[in-house]
Design a protein around this nucleic acid. Sequence first.
DNA 1: AGTGATTTTGCAACCGGTTGCAAAATTTAT
DNA 2: ATAAATTTTGCAACCGGTTGCAAAATCACT
Lengths: 337, 337
Amino acid sequence: MAVTLKEVAKMAGVSRSAVSRTFTSGASVSEKTRKKVEKAARELGFRPSLIARSLATKRTKLIGLIANNFQNPIFLEVFDLYTQALQKLGLRPLLVNLTNETNLDQSIEMLRQYNVDGVIVATSTLPPYFAKSLKDAQLPVVHVFGRAGIGTDVHVVGVDNFSCGQMAAETLYNYGYRQLAFLGGPETATTTQDRAAGFVKFLQDRGIEPADIRYASAYEYQAGRTAMSELLQAKTVEAVFCGDDLICMGALDEARQSGIKVPEELGLIGFNDLEIAQWSAYDLTTIRQPTRDIIKSSIELIVGLVDEPDRALEARVFPCSVVERGTLKARSAAADT
Amino acid sequence: MAVTLKEVAKMAGVSRSAVSRTFTSGASVSEKTRKKVEKAARELGFRPSLIARSLATKRTKLIGLIANNFQNPIFLEVFDLYTQALQKLGLRPLLVNLTNETNLDQSIEMLRQYNVDGVIVATSTLPPYFAKSLKDAQLPVVHVFGRAGIGTDVHVVGVDNFSCGQMAAETLYNYGYRQLAFLGGPETATTTQDRAAGFVKFLQDRGIEPADIRYASAYEYQAGRTAMSELLQAKTVEAVFCGDDLICMGALDEARQSGIKVPEELGLIGFNDLEIAQWSAYDLTTIRQPTRDIIKSSIELIVGLVDEPDRALEARVFPCSVVERGTLKARSAAADT
DNA sequence: AGTGATTTTGCAACCGGTTGCAAAATTTAT
DNA sequence: ATAAATTTTGCAACCGGTTGCAAAATCACT
């Protein structure tokens, strides 16, 4: 069916090894045989089988890409960046959907069976069992968008969510808001916990108690709406830091439908800077993480780990920034410093 | 490193074939040896290498999943459904990003080298060159969301975009709108062409000339805004059929910012029923395609094709439906029939 | 127990590449 | 021209499974 080494070798009048060598970078072949082989290969339409090569070299050029959130558009961007960047390096992403925990074992099994060279986990929280299994399988792992901290046993590339929380609080504070609430994603997510902690810390350092700390059931629009609705009934606040833009948009729509004007009567700041955030219907002030840089770095890291699995554990932390748009407004009673 | 057949065989005191057979469904092994082998395998933590198996069986269980649009959230849903459904069948998606045409050849190369069992192309338009290359490589191909029609040489699963265009026109017509415009995606996309044609046909059958036919430069929000802005300057229309929800949301925001009230002064109908379409800031009336069914069917088809590559060419067409929300309003001068 | 039919088993070749090693060919130095 | 050093080449084993085939084992039946 497909053209193999042997046929090319026969046609070029050389040994199989010679053919193999012309297609392996760094192998020694004379210019003369290389030419012959390339000619034969071209005429026969030969392409070396990656499967066979993988078997022999024990490298598959496959990178497992694990995600468990297919609701948030940010992941579409993530997939876009990963596929493109990996492609450029001659690598391929093997996409694993970890939405149902039921297939967790099955997924790990698969990753091992396919002999992926490395695994990139793009979930806000890394299930410990998952981490352990990958460790046991001796697979290089990079947790992207994860929590960098002590006690972790995988490499992490992401942002410091604690600082992000502080940054959000600081932004609101500088605008003059004083009655502040945090409206995060699920409380179990370490990202949420860290953002909340940073947010609270900043305020308490200034002697302010947060007016409300609340968690949406998911990083989703509807969850944001529901949580916001509850928040509005329970407390009166001047501004809310939402742990994700989707939640923030839900909160914004909920506020609007309750007749609350944003930013006149309520300030909102989101997280992630989704593309939608800049749509004029929302025009969200938000905190953005440098997704592109994070992903680029995570790929460099995983590629490095493939060749050097025992590298020292590393946490690569990138800075976030505030994107100012239309959901915050300076308070008349603004105080500075 | 990893545990292999040989070691399990040794431990269980049987031949390698016996071990292989216990892990191959449909092979004949006695209950006794199966037990022995399974015990040994369990103790050693053996998992058969899919790479080696692929080499021998010439089946990789890898399905190429080709996409070229990582801007539209609909594809996140598509990826979600595909990964889950494929996983359930023990298959894996190998995601290929065809955004830059530059790497088209490279991508095909990859698909062939990885020996994917089949390819699912999820792009609105199938580049002919791409189709031909896959054909040449003898790879089973299913074009999902593609155009079902004569002259195609690949299997297609999707909707009848011509009917969808008619359906959109009919919906607007029944609401009493008479000055109608079409605002599609790029004119080169066959989906756009078909929707436009259906739209125009319905109107002309009733003696109505469409007020405007216009194409956004991409299936994106900003493109929608820009195109809508131009449309508003050029014509006065009562309602617009947008070839995609993203475009429709751009159009809606553009109209609003121009001080035009929707639906009071302008009717809008979109396409795709993105999750965002139901957000209260948009509340789009739109046409939805049964994505879930389409994807399910496309997987069944590709799986069938793997075993039976010469199946008769098939087009599976699913019906669309109108999702009524808030961007259309019955005209006072409504005429029926 | 003996015969034939059926199932289970191991051997060995194969899938399509890679690679260490020694022989052959080429280059360089004398 | 010859010897030494260097490069290129082919052989053969290997990566970790599968599978056709014939021998061995088991089963069914007189």
